[in-house]
Computed example of a mutant assay.
Amino acid sequence: MVRKRKDEPWLAGQINPIRCGEKIKRDHDPESGSSGDEWDRVGLKEILAGEHTNLYQGQSEFQDIHMVSKEDVRLYLNGQLQFSSVDERIYHEAFIHVPFSLKGSIQKVLVLGGGDGLALREILKYQEVKSVDLVDIDSKVVELAKHNQDLMALNDRSFYDERVNTFIKDAKIFVKSNRKVYDLIVIDFPDPSNELLAGLYTVELFEKLYNALSDDGLIVCQSNALDAAPTVFWSIGLTFERAGFYTEQYHTIIPSFGDWGFTLASKKRLSRHFTNRSGYHRTLPDNIERLFQFQPDYWHYKKRAVINSERKLHLHAIFNEENG
């Protein structure tokens, strides 16, 4: 979900153990000046002001990384909450199991982003999946997911599954050089809060993904919080359509984040006939169709949707306007 500083050295290729597991209490805000959402910064400040366990704190080339435990486990990147262990399954189960419920057989999967391994955990539940290529730009987030015991417990050691191939690379560069074809493409990019990140949600990139998708394949893309940035949500869908896809959009309530949206894109018109596979998830409604229903107020913002392209990047401006 929402995602330059100098590297801090890692010891023996593992997670930096400094302060890992140490009980600490602080009065200052180490995240001040970060680019995270204001609510997340306030929440993190309050956690750090009281007794908590600092599971990891460091910096990569791209972002500040901070994982803390209080009643739950939370990962912050640049001061912005990525997940809480209390409700992350709601996000990841809606993200992954909805496309699987629509597609007969998914054997080859591409994941763009998702370096924490949580979406990967859900994908690997399906034995029909033969291979998963995961692309993330930040090696330190992936290393955290591979070596931190708390995060490994959450992601079920997903990176150690022999079906997984990990690429530490810019997603745009990977897609440009890719020659493989996938049955499912999972896009877990950061929210388009600045111009650089808005460049991940363009017609041009989606057109390249069109060529990487099998004829009967699906793309699922995280598409921001409807209650915070509804125009961004609909604009991502419209941009997929301009790239030649048919789309369907859906949403679910995640207490840590609000009313969160997702976009499905396919080369053929989607038929919403769901196969509910019991045992794979616990948070989806019995009638998945409910996730595709929207309150009338949300439809109003669809009229404002715009196409986001490399020559005319709009999403970051809309995102920041709607988020105040």
Rank of each mutant, 00 (worst) to 15 (best):
K4G: 05
P9F: 13
L11Y: 13
G13I: 09
I15D: 06
I24R: 15
I24P: 01
R26A: 04
P30R: 12
E31S: 11
S32I: 14
D40V: 01
N54K: 14
F62C: 04
I65D: 11
H66P: 00
V68C: 12
S69N: 13
Y76E: 07
L77E: 07
G79S: 13
Q80V: 11
I90W: 00
H92N: 08
E93T: 12
V98P: 08
V109W: 03
G115K: 13
I123V: 15
K125H: 03
K125Y: 01
Q127W: 00
L134R: 02
D136F: 10
D138F: 12
K140R: 14
V141G: 06
V141Y: 09
V142A: 05
A145I: 02
A145F: 05
L151H: 11
D156H: 12
S158E: 02
D161H: 12
V164I: 09
N165Q: 08
R179I: 12
R179A: 03
L184A: 06
D191V: 09
N194K: 07
L197N: 03
E204T: 09
K208T: 01
S214A: 15
D216E: 15
V220M: 07
A225M: 13
A228D: 07
V232H: 08
L238E: 14
R242C: 01
Q249L: 10
P255A: 08
S256C: 11
R269N: 12
N276H: 07
T283W: 01
P285F: 09
I288D: 01
E289V: 00
Q293G: 00
V306A: 10
V306Q: 12
N308H: 07
R311C: 03
L313E: 02
A317H: 10
N320L: 11
N323R: 13
